[in-house]
């Protein structure tokens, strides 16, 4: 970091003529590579190598024995076939998509609503905003354990309140019914994700020049029209960032589910993350675990590419 910064600074003060020749000379080329090398090596060592390794591993019979003997024979598509023919995997793929879509929708809509709400200043708005940030500060596992208690069917606070207010006829089986458990997990994750969405979107809203809103008001646009035609388009780049980052952190969900339901009841909350965990670290079949991991990477990669394209389009327009 320091080296790069100094380098840039020195280059900036040098006379332009020397810089051009130096930059094009052979020595300059080498120098350039040396600056790039640490970053490239870092990427190769910590991203490239594990990625390639994970892909290779999904074609290998990789078990505890491998750790002792170092041998991991290739078994072709064996792992892939085993995983794809397992109904648990197809179920988990579906659950992951539902969980991700539901979480993002909930987090984003509520986060945006709160951001818009807080963008007009009022008494105690700073304080209220700070309080809303709290869920973000709580470790995921702690959150899950507390929610597990809150959602307990017989003694949980939520059911006590619901039945006490006669909003529910009987205790809701939040975590003990396969039909409800995934929804409960989504609700908890929405609660966790609201602060992140709110903070980033709030920041984005602050960047929108006030006079645009004033101009819209002069043109006779109502609140909804202004929001749709001014606020949302101006917020687009920020929205993309929020959704893509949200997607990345949601699609790989593991800790929340493990602590909340452990994938149950009856596998109703198994996600790609929990299936990878189960295969690799409970059954110690690392080859099959790698298959699910690769699927997860592929899903993320698709969205990363979409994000980059969207970003480029925004950037181009900005110019």
């Amino acid at each position: 970091m320091t080296i790069t910064a100094t380098g840039a600074a020195t280059a900036g003060t040098r006379p332009p003529a020397e810089r051009t020749t130096g930059g094009r000379g052979r020595g300059g080329g080498l120098l350039r590579w040396c600056f790039v090398a640490p970053a490239v090596l870092y990427m190769l060592a910590f991203f490239g190598y594990p990625l390639v390794r994970n892909i290779l591993m999904s074609f290998q019979h990789y078990t505890p024995r491998t750790y002792f003997t170092g041998s991991s024979p290739f078994n072709g598509l064996g792992n892939w076939r085993a995983v794809f023919s397992d109904p648990l995997f197809t179920g988990s793929l579906w659950h992951t998509l539902v969980f991700t879509a539901g979480s993002l929708l909930g987090q984003f809509v509520i986060g945006l609503a709160l951001a818009v709400f807080f963008s007009r200043r009022f008494r105690l708005s700073g304080f209220a905003r700070a309080v809303l940030l709290l869920p973000w500060l709580v470790p995921m596992v702690v959150t899950s354990i507390v929610w597990r208690k809150l959602l307990d069917q017989d003694t949980g606070v939520i059911n006590t309140v619901l039945t006490g207010l006669h909003l529910a006829s009987g205790p809701v089986p939040w975590l003990s019914s396969p039909g409800v458990a995934l929804l409960s997990a989504i609700l908890v994750n929405v609660w966790i994700g609201i602060p992140f969405n709110m903070v980033i979107l709030y920041g984005g809203l602050q960047e929108i020049p006030r006079d645009l809103h004033e101009a819209a008001a002069l043109d006779g646009a109502g609140a909804w029209r202004t929001f749709r035609s001014v606020t949302l388009p101006m917020l687009r780049p920020v929205v993309t960032v929020v959704l893509v980052l949200g997607f990345m952190s949601t699609v790989k969900i593991l800790d929340l589910i493990l602590a909340l339901t452990a994938g149950g009841p009856a596998d109703a909350t198994q996600t790609l993350g929990t299936v990878t965990y189960r295969l690799s670290f409970e059954q110690l079949d690392f080859g099959q675990g790698a298959v699910v991991g690769n699927v997860l990477i592929a899903v993320s990669a698709v969205f990363a590419v979409l994000y980059l394209r969207a970003n480029r389009a925004d950037f181009g327009r900005g110019k």
Binding site: E18, L31, C34, A37, L41
Partner: peptide
């Protein structure tokens, strides 16, 4: 040659080498 550049190049080469060394 500019002495600053010498030092810089040396530093960059060394940092790259050090990184490679820890990796292997």
């Amino acid at each position: 040659m500019d002495p600053t550049r010498h030092r810089l190049r040396a530093a960059a080469v060394m940092s790259a080498a050090a990184l490679a060394a820890t990796a292997v």
